[in-house]
Amino acid sequence: MTVSDAEQGSGPGTKGAGSAAMGADADDGYRPSARRLERERYRRARTRRAFLIAAVSTLVTAAVLYVLVVGSPGWDRTRETFFDAHYARTSFPDIMRGLWLNLRLLVVCGAVVLVAGLLVALLRTLRGPVFFPLRALATAYVDFFRGLPLIICILVCVFGIPALRLRGVTTDPVLLGGLALCLTYTAYVAEVFRAGIETVHPSQRAAARSLGLSNSQAMRYVVLPQAVRGVVPPLLNDLVSLQKDTGLVSIGGAVDAVYAAQITASEKFNYTPYVVAGLIFVVITIPMTRFTDWVAARMNRRQAQGGAV
């Protein structure tokens, strides 16, 4: 259906043919043939069968997993330590208070990282000898911070910078930890943007330049919009990763969700708060994923030709 619509609608001189083809049961005396009805019956039967198989398969898998976990020798002990309803309830408010810090860090660092990452990527694509130092600096920056383990970067920022005893420079572990997150993630995100810029076909740049657009205009109006569309999924991946890594600022003593869980866990010798914190992180990333899926799908719907595949 969709395929034939798209083909009919795009031919020259078939203006309005799209709407005519929309209803396959247009008023032309068409009656579905026996062949079509038989095919549709077959497809429905196949769908029912597939659904049944999926349901059975899921149930079997769940049962096997359940027996494996619950039947394991240490299950009772594990359940007490990791899945205790009482500790889950009592630790929940503290974890949520800590989570507020994670979310603030995510929003602020995420915004900084996206802007700075794009800037660094653009610096790396600059042509011309004047920009050599900028280009070299951007490349060195990315090489260094992409390789440096985040935890070391945080340790250096959180403990190293205060050790300098500079006047007017903060010693707040949240700010310094956030700085470390930004430094590392900007390097990752810059590479994602650069990959996106490089996947835009050179003919697009050629077309833009032939129209008289300058190098930077071609980048701004033609290359970047296409590059960004292509890298939304990997960017989201990095943002989710950033969200989880905001937990590492607890190294410097800031109380985030993970640290709040740790406090309870070490007081009560029960790991349930960790499980609670982990699940909360999972739950808040899911809407982000769905949102980007939706954005990507909307972009495709608007631009691309319809089709069955």
Binding site: A207, A208, S210, G212, L213, V222, P225, Q226, R229
Partner: peptide, 25 residues
């Protein structure tokens, strides 16, 4: 210039493709 492979900008509507250079350049 017109190329063999058209090289229209896929992220812009037809009208935006046409008006990009007149407006920006």
């Amino acid at each position: 210039v017109v190329f063999q492979a058209y090289n229209l900008f896929p992220h812009m509507t037809v009208l935006d493709n046409i008006t990009l250079a007149p407006r920006r350049v």
